[in-house]
Amino acid sequence: MDALQNQAMAQAQVRRRQAERQKVRAALLRIEEGEYGFCTDCGEEIAAERRAADPAIARCLDCTRG
């Protein structure tokens, strides 16, 4: 049972790392396109504090909550 749980945890970690890499790639693309710092949903500027906490963030707080 422990082996199955360890395997599941390892797979979850791989998925989290892949998702984080994709998030960073998307942020780099937004930088290249001159759209970094703006919400991908509404187009409003993402608060500097929010970007500082997570530089790869794609959505403003309102759209994240919405």
Rank of each mutant, 00 (worst) to 15 (best):
R50H: 07
G37T: 02
A53C: 13
A8C: 12
T64G: 07
I31A: 09
R65K: 08
V14D: 11
G34N: 02
D2E: 15
V14L: 14
Q18D: 05
R59L: 15
Q7L: 13
A19Y: 02
R65C: 03
V24C: 04
A12F: 10
R51V: 07
V24H: 04
A52Y: 01
Q7I: 10
Y36L: 00
Q13H: 11
A56F: 00
Q11I: 11
A58K: 14
L29S: 10
N6V: 10
R15S: 15
A58F: 06
A12M: 12
R59M: 14
I57N: 03
A27Y: 01
E49I: 10
C42M: 12
L28D: 06
G43P: 06
R30G: 04
N6Y: 14
T64M: 14
R21I: 04
T64R: 14
K23R: 14
Q13I: 12
C39M: 08
A12W: 05
R25A: 07
L4D: 11
R17W: 06
I31W: 01
R15K: 13
R30I: 00
A27M: 00
E45K: 09
V24F: 00
A53F: 01
A26H: 02
A26V: 01
L4K: 15
C60I: 03
G66A: 13
V24G: 02
A52P: 07
V14M: 12
A47R: 11
Q5E: 15
A56W: 05
E49A: 14
G43I: 05
R65G: 05
R17M: 11
A52K: 12
R30F: 00
E20M: 08
L29G: 08
Y36P: 05
R65E: 11
A19M: 07
C39N: 01
R50T: 09
R21N: 02
R59V: 13
E20A: 11
A27I: 00
A56T: 14
R17I: 06
Q18W: 03
A10G: 06
L29Y: 02
I57C: 04
A58M: 13
E44F: 08
T64L: 15
R25F: 00
E44K: 05
A3I: 12
R15Q: 14
